[in-house]
Every structure is written in structure tokens, then in C-alpha cells.
Amino acid sequence: MAVATNNDALLEVRNLKKYFPVTKGLILMKTIGYVQAVDGISFSIKQGETVGLVGESGCGKTTTSKLLLRLENPTEGDILLEGRDINTFRGAELQDYRTTVQAVFQDPWSSLSPRMRVRDIVSEPLVVNRNVTTQEKNERVAEVLQQVGLHAQQATNYPHEFSGGQRQRIAVASALVSYPKLIVLDEPVSALDVSIRAQVMNLLKDLQEQYNVSYLLIAHNLATVRYMAHETAVMYLGQIVEYAETEELYNNALHPYTRALFSAALPSHPDLIREDIVLQGEVPSPINPPSGCRFHPRCPFAMPQCSEEAPVEKEVSPGHRVSCHLY
């Protein structure tokens, strides 16, 4: 799967794979198979832009984010940050990577330590990686807190004194404090209330402009991705089945799975219900994924060759890639 090297890309993922061994036995653990959580995905993120990863649970989007954050090591493939493979980073380089790439997680209740003050939570990336004075640290914390719409005085409070939306703002502040180049947003608004989601999404967009930071947005909600992302990748069972600029993808979805996702997405008006594809069955187990095209057992357009041969990714128009025998 050759991907042309993108020179203006901040981060490039090439043929990334992550297999988790499935083991049996208490003492002598025997590997009886692998969960193919991520199986050969490639994409790149440009400076100051957002790439959205959409898919259902178990499609490998969260594993992808963990690989990017180096919380897991890939089985195969490269992740290049400004041309350098992040998995070769050690010591100072790794520290530097840690300040360059940050994350905001889904659950604002579990992502802030209940025993730390907001100031310590927000400044963690600074304290760990840089020799900054307490005063510099406090000034920077006050600055980012204001940027995310909180008061600088709230730095001394504990997380339980904040609502969900405010806590997510604290998480965003912490991710921003070290001037990162990339922030991985793992379902940043799905745990929030409806009227709070728009606040946080708008905030994230504003901050992107202000900091020229790139986002990798992991989401299951297509509308959220449409609002936030410049480019969108649709994942199914560890693979990217379709990748395009967001506008292109939303106006011209090609892969049957993508179309099914659009059909299943909830309408914004009762008159807008459109169901062109309704999927039957559920996502198969990633331990023994179906042969050929992984989507063929659920695909309404499946052809004989789909179960035998895995489709090759094709570029149907500039920047719009699909893996499907139909095209």
C-alpha cells in the first residue's frame, strides 16, 4: 500500500498495524490468536488542520490514537512526526515528543485526577518536561485557563468543583499548555450535555486557529466530524475504508459502509430521514475478521469476489481514496 510522502504533513502514518495477542492459561500464557485492532492504515495530518477518524466501537480508532500518543507500540508500520519516526525516539527526543503531542479524552470525570488542583493538572506537561520556574508556570496556567474560558483564580480549585463542560475545558487547557503541534481528541464532546457540546466544539475550533495546532479527532458522530474536521477517514474493523476531504466525503460518499453510516446517522429534522442503506447484523470479531473485504458479510452490494479478495485502495478523485471492489 504505497502512499506518496506528503511534504507539508505534520504527522504521517504509514501502514500502521497493531495486533494484540489473545492469550490462554494462567501461568504459561499461550497465544491463541491476535486481535487485529489496527491493520494497515495510512493517513497524514497537515499543520493546523483536523483529521477525523469515524467508526463504530471496535473499529480501531481508539487504538490508533493510543499508537499516536505512544501509549502503545505498533506491531508494524511507521508514525512520522515532521519526517522522523516517533518510535525511535528515546530520552530527550521522547520528552520533546511528549510536549509536541497532547490529548483530550472522552470522559471529563476520569481524565482529571480528583486529588490534584487545577493548576497542577494543567501544568503537568510543563513540570514534567521543562525547567520552568513556578512563576512562569503559574502565569502560563492563568493564560490558558482564560483562553479556554475559565477564571485564572480557579486554578486553586479541585476538579470536583466543576461541571462536565468546565472539566473538559480544563483538559483542553492542559493539552494546550505546552504549545503542542498535535492534539489527539478522543470523543471530546460525546460525554457532555447537548447545550455544552457546542461551547466546547467552538472553543476547540477557535484554539486551533489561535495556536495553529493540528487535531486528530476520534468520533462516532458524523455531524461532529463534519463540523470539526478538514479531512475524514472512515474506519471499519481496523482498516480505513474511505478517506477524503470532509466536504467531498459528505457530498459524495462512495463506500457502502460510509453510506450506511450516513443512513444510520440521526437526522436534524423529521423530514430529513433518508435510509438508502440499512445494515443487517453486527460488526464481526476482530480476532477472526472476514476474508477478503472485511465488510462483505454486511454489505448489501457484496459480490463473489468480495469474500475472496481484499480490495485495493483506489484514488477515485484527488485526495478521495476508497477500498471497495465497486470502484
Partner: peptide, 25 residues
């Protein structure tokens, strides 16, 4: 919990994660 992942993403060492993030809880 996610805050442990966050600490790792921020580059905290294992000892720091244990003492600063896990132990107080």
C-alpha cells in the same frame, strides 16, 4: 482512568505517575 494516560502523554515518569497520580487516589 484517563488521567493516568494523560500523565503518560505528558511524559511523566513511572515513578511520578505512581507517586503523584496513583498514590494520592
Amino acid at each position: 482512568q484517563d488521567f493516568i494516560d494523560r500523565a503518560r502523554v505528558s511524559g511523566a515518569s513511572n515513578a511520578r505517575i505512581m507517586m503523584r497520580h496513583i498514590f494520592p487516589n
